[in-house]
C-alpha cells in the first residue's frame, strides 16, 4: 500500500523556519493544546511525517503516545535553533531501557 506522503514541521515559527527550505510545510504552535489539535488535523490531511521541535515535543509527549502503535504519522522530535538535542538522546536511552531492561548502549 504505497502512498505519497507529505512532511510538516511544528514548533515556534521563528526557530523552525529553516525547514521550509527543504520543502517541509512549517506550522506555528507552541501551546500543548494547540499542538495536539494541529497534529490531529495534519494527520487527517495526509501528512505522514510530522517533525516537532524538541521543546514543544517534550511538553506534549504524553498526548502523542496514541500515535506510537500505528506506522503513520511518524512524529519525531527535531532540534530547533536553540535546543541541543539532549532530549532526543534521552528518548533513545529510554527506548533501550524499555526494550532491554537497562541502558546498555
Amino acid at each position: 500500500m504505497e502512498k505519497k506522503i507529505k512532511a510538516a514541521v511544528v514548533g515556534d515559527k521563528s526557530r523552525v523556519a529553516m525547514y521550509a527550505a527543504a520543502g517541509v510545510a512549517v506550522y506555528h504552535a507552541t501551546e500543548r493544546h494547540d499542538v495536539l489539535k494541529l497534529i490531529q488535523q495534519l494527520d487527517s490531511e495526509g501528512y505522514g511525517i510530522i517533525f516537532v521541535s524538541e521543546p514543544v515535543y517534550a511538553e506534549c509527549e504524553d498526548g502523542l503516545k496514541k500515535y506510537v502503535s500505528q506506522p503513520y504519522p511518524i512524529i519525531i522530535p527535531v532540534p530547533d535553533e536553540n535546543s541541543d538535542g539532549s532530549y532526543a538522546r534521552q528518548r533513545i536511552a529510554e527506548n533501550v531501557k524499555k526494550a532491554i531492561g537497562s541502558d546498555i548502549i
Binding site: 504505497e2 505519497k4 507529505k6 523556519a17 527550505a21 520543502g23
Partner: peptide
C-alpha cells in the same frame, strides 16, 4: 529571510510503505 523562505519551494516526493 522569512519572506524568501515562505515562497513555495515545491513539494517533496516521499512515498510511504509498510
Amino acid at each position: 529571510l522569512y519572506e524568501a523562505l515562505m515562497l513555495p519551494a515545491g513539494e517533496v516526493g516521499i512515498t510511504g510503505d509498510v
